[in-house]
Nucleic acid binder design. Structure first.
Lengths: 339, 339
DNA sequence: TCTTGGCACTCCCGGGCGGTGAGTGCCAGC
DNA sequence: GCTGGCACTCACCGCCCGGGAGTGCCAAGA
C-alpha cells in the first residue's frame, strides 16, 4: 500500500519536474496532485525514494529531481503511450502525403517530428537491404564515359559515372546493359550483388568495361551511402536546455553533425514496432549523458528499413514524445508501403 | 596624413576586437600595434571615428567597438583577401576530390567550409537551369504505374512516380519514351520544358498517359526542388556568439532551418567570381542583424549555378573567411566542371 | 595646427554581506 | 503508519563598495 503511493509520488515528481523544470518540494506536490496525505508523509516517501536512487536533491534543502533510474522506472512502469488525437493524426497524414519522393518523406518527417515534440528530430534514410532492383540502365555519355543508373523498389535511384579505359560504341553498351539487367532486375539487393559477382570477370573482349560497370553497380547498391545518412531537424529546440550554451549545447550540436554517432544512437531502437527509450547515462555516449533518445524503427510490414526518433533532455514529456514518434513512424511506414 | 592614421586606427580596432572580442582601448592599441603615437593622440582619432559612426562604445568609459559601418569600410578599403597556403589548397582539393556525386560534393563542401572558417557554412545545391537532359527513361512498374527518370548533365537524377488512369502495356510505354526522349534529349532544361509543352496534349489514344508523364517531367525539371535546397553545417560554431543562447542563438538556429531565408541570403551574392559580404543590419533580415554573411557564386565557367558562403558574427575574421569561401567555391566549380 | 602628458571623472565588474523563503529532517503524539 | 510542529540549511537576491580600465578635456610643447 505504501509502496503504491510511493510510486504515485515518483510519478508526480516526474510530471511536475518535466512541467516546471524546477526541483519539486513536498508541499507543492500534495497541492497540485490529489494525494490524500500530508506533506510530512510525502517527505518520508521521498526519503525512501531517494534511498532507492530514484530521485535526488541538487543541494540540501532543495526540492527533489528524478534521476535517470527514476525516469527509467517512470517510463517502464508508470506510464502508457497516450494515443494521438484524430486531429493530430490527420495533420501528420496531410503533411506526409504531400511528399514527392523518398528523400522528401524523410525531410518532411524530420520537420514534423521536431514540431510535434519540440525536440531535435532524427530520421535515418531507408536502408536498401530489402529493396529489389526495378531497373538498370546504362547511358553512354561520350565514347569513354558511361552513366550507370539503378532504380530500386524503394523509389531510390542510385547512379555512378564510369570512366572506361577504352572507347565503347552504343551496341557494346547495349550489350552490357542487357546482360546486367537480365541478371539482376527484380532481385533484392543482396541477390543482385551476388549475381553481379559472376559477371565481373566474363570471357571475351568486353571484360574491362563490363567489370568497371559491374563494380560501379555493386558500389551503388552497397547500402553504405544511403544508410549512413541521417536527417536532423529542430536543433533550435536545444534552447530547452536551460544550461549554458558552451557546456551543454555546443557538444550536442557537434555530435548531431556526426552522423555516425547518430546512427548508433538510432540503431539501439528495437525492431518490431516498439518505441525504445534510452535515458541519460545509459549507453557509452558521453555527449548524450544529459539527454534521452526516443526512437523506433519504421518500414513496410514488420521489417524495419530505418529508424527515427528524437533527442531531448532527460527531463522530457515521455508519454507525449513516445506517442509522436510512434505515430510518425507508422505513417512513414504506410507511405513507403504505398510507394 | 592624419586621415591615414585614423584608418590605421580603425583597422587596428577591428583586428583587435575580432581577436579578443573585447572593447579595445587607446592604451592597448598603441602597445599591440606599432603606431608611433601616444594614447592621447589615438583617443582624438577615436573620437573622430566615433563622430563618423565607424566605431562606438558600449558605455561611457569603455573601449571602442566597430560598428557595421566600420566593418564595411574595413572590408571595402582596408583589407585584401589573403591567399590560402599551398597546404590548405591541397587539403581542400583532397577532400572534395573524394566526392562520388553532386550531392556528395555539396555535403563535403559544407563540412569543409565550416571547418575552415569555424563558422556556419551554407552551400546551395546546384540549380538545374543550365543543365542539359542527358537521358530520359520510363520504367513500367505495374500496369498503371510508371517511373519517370530524367538524368541531367549536372549529374543529378530526377525521378517521378506516375499513376496512370488506365493500364498501359510495355509497347505503349516504349512508344511514349521514344517520343519524349526524341524531343528533349540533349537540350537544356528551358528548351526541353518548352518542347514538352507540345507533347502535353497529343492526338490519339495515349493522350492521357502521355500527358501525365510529360507533366511529371516538367515538374521534375522545374528547378524548384533542387534549387530550393541548402545544405547547412557547422552550427556548433554558433557557440562563438558569446551572448545568451535564448536571445541570440535560438532565433538563428530557427532561421537556419528556414531554407527559403537562407536562399535569399545567399542570393545576394554577386555572380562573376567576387566574394560578397553582407554586414549586420544591411538587408531586411532581422534575425541576422548581428551576423555577417560572406558568400559567392560557384559554377563551371563564369556562370553561377549556385551560391555558397558562411554566416557568422559581425565580429569575424573577414580576410580569412573571404579567402576560404573563395577557395572552396573555386574548387567546387572545378569539380563540377570535370563531372 | 597637431601631438602629448596630466588629471579628474565615469562606470563596469567582482566580492562580501545580510535578509528571505522554500524545503528538509526529525520528533513526539495520535 | 500518519501528522503537525519546529529548528535548521542553503540558494537566491538586492545592496554596497572598492578597484581598475578607459575616457574627455586642457594646457603646454613642437
Amino acid at each position: 500500500m505504501q509502496d503504491e503511493r510511493r510510486l504515485a509520488v515518483l510519478r508526480a515528481i516526474v510530471e511536475d519536474y518535466v512541467a516546471t523544470q524546477e526541483p519539486v518540494g513536498s508541499k507543492a506536490l500534495v497541492e497540485r496532485h490529489g494525494l490524500g496525505v500530508s506533506p510530512a508523509t510525502v517527505r518520508n516517501d521521498m526519503a525512501a525514494l531517494e534511498e532507492e536512487g530514484l530521485i535526488t536533491q541538487p543541494h540540501t534543502s532543495a526540492g527533489r529531481v528524478p534521476t535517470d533510474k527514476g525516469y527509467r522506472l517512470f517510463v517502464d512502469r508508470l506510464t502508457t503511450i497516450k494515443p494521438m488525437s484524430a486531429a493530430e493524426k490527420r495533420a501528420i497524414a496531410t503533411i506526409l502525403d504531400g511528399a514527392v519522393d523518398v528523400d522528401d518523406v524523410v525531410r518532411r518527417s524530420v520537420r514534423l517530428l521536431a514540431q510535434l515534440t519540440h525536440q531535435v528530430a532524427l530520421v535515418q534514410y531507408p536502408t536498401l537491404n530489402r529493396s529489389t532492383v526495378r531497373h538498370v540502365d546504362l547511358v553512354g555519355l561520350t565514347e569513354t564515359r558511361v552513366l550507370v543508373v539503378a532504380i530500386l523498389s524503394s523509389g531510390r535511384v542510385e547512379q555512378r559515372l564510369v570512366e572506361l579505359d577504352r572507347p565503347l560504341d552504343d551496341d557494346a553498351v547495349a550489350d552490357i546493359r542487357g546482360r546486367v539487367a537480365g541478371v539482376i532486375t527484380g532481385r533484392i539487393i543482396a541477390e543482385a550483388t551476388a549475381a553481379l559477382g559472376d559477371l565481373a570477370a566474363p570471357p571475351g573482349d568486353d571484360a574491362g568495361p563490363q567489370s568497371l560497370v559491374v563494380d560501379a553497380l555493386v558500389d551503388a547498391m552497397s547500402d553504405h551511402r544511403s544508410s549512413e545518412r541521417v536527417a536532423v531537424g529542430g536543433t533550435a529546440n536545444l534552447a530547452r536546455f536551460g544550461d549554458s550554451f558552451e557546456v551543454s549545447v555546443r557538444p550536442l550540436l557537434e555530435a548531431l553533425e556526426e552522423h555516425v554517432v547518430l546512427l548508433k544512437l538510432l540503431g539501439e531502437a528495437q525492431t518490431g514496432g516498439a518505441v525504445t527509450v534510452r535515458i541519460g547515462h545509459e549507453g557509452p555516449y558521453t555527449e548524450f549523458a544529459t539527454t534521452s533518445v526516443v526512437a523506433t524503427g519504421y518500414g513496410p510490414g514488420q521489417e524495419a528499413v530505418g529508424n527515427l526518433g528524437v533527442v531531448g533532455p532527460t527531463r522530457m514529456d515521455y508519454p507525449g514524445t513516445m506517442a509522436s514518434v510512434r505515430a510518425v513512424a507508422r505513417y512513414v511506414s504506410r507511405i513507403l508501403d504505398e510507394a
